[in-house]
Amino acid sequence: MANKLLRKTFMEPLGKNNPVFVQILGICSTLAVTNKLQNTMVMTLGVLFTTALSSLTISLLRNYIPSRIRMMVETMVIATFVIIVDIVLKAFYPEMWKQLGPYVGLIITNCIIMGRIEAFALQNKPMLSLVDGLASGLGYAYVLLAIAFVRELLGTGSLWGYQILGSWWTNWSIMIMPPGGFFVLAIIIWIIREKIMKEAKND
């Protein structure tokens, strides 16, 4: 019974309740760095860490937070974890930290984190909230990594900084520029939504 619930909590954000293409949440802070797979990986790991741990923390505190100031408390908790991410990056990967610039800090305003806390962690037990936060972060991560994969491959002919496509490839430089991010995300949303609609019809 408990296992089933855990499984369901874990699988839903990965599939039919994905935060990015179903709820269109939280793309602001990360879409900007999806022109490189490496940067996207670091950013999504940051988001994953923050969603999972802030969901856990809020869930542990849920009976002690007065509901009037809960937004403030939630923001503080999220900001604390983001500051940890920021400091760790700055200390161990200063190059990466410089490239990501303000976007690490913007994880705080990522709507997914606040959304999961409000919708899930405030009503559920700590373990379950941790799993939910983790799954939401993962669901978010794979969509953004897919976007970054397409953008970096088509835009520069390389992946993870290594040249993949030969000299015959003409770079689609629009892909690494801002419009590319919008188009790739739109196409991914389109494909997934068509698929979901088809499944709903068949059911």
Binding site: G180, F183, L185, I189, E194
Partner: peptide, 23 residues
């Protein structure tokens, strides 16, 4: 609009064109 593209999808496509115009 194709049903899967309605709402956020088409908005993102338009935003993409706007970004191109601003380029």
């Amino acid at each position: 609009i194709p049903p899967g593209l309605e709402g956020p999808g088409i908005t993102l496509v338009i935003a993409g064109f706007m970004a191109m115009a601003f380029m």
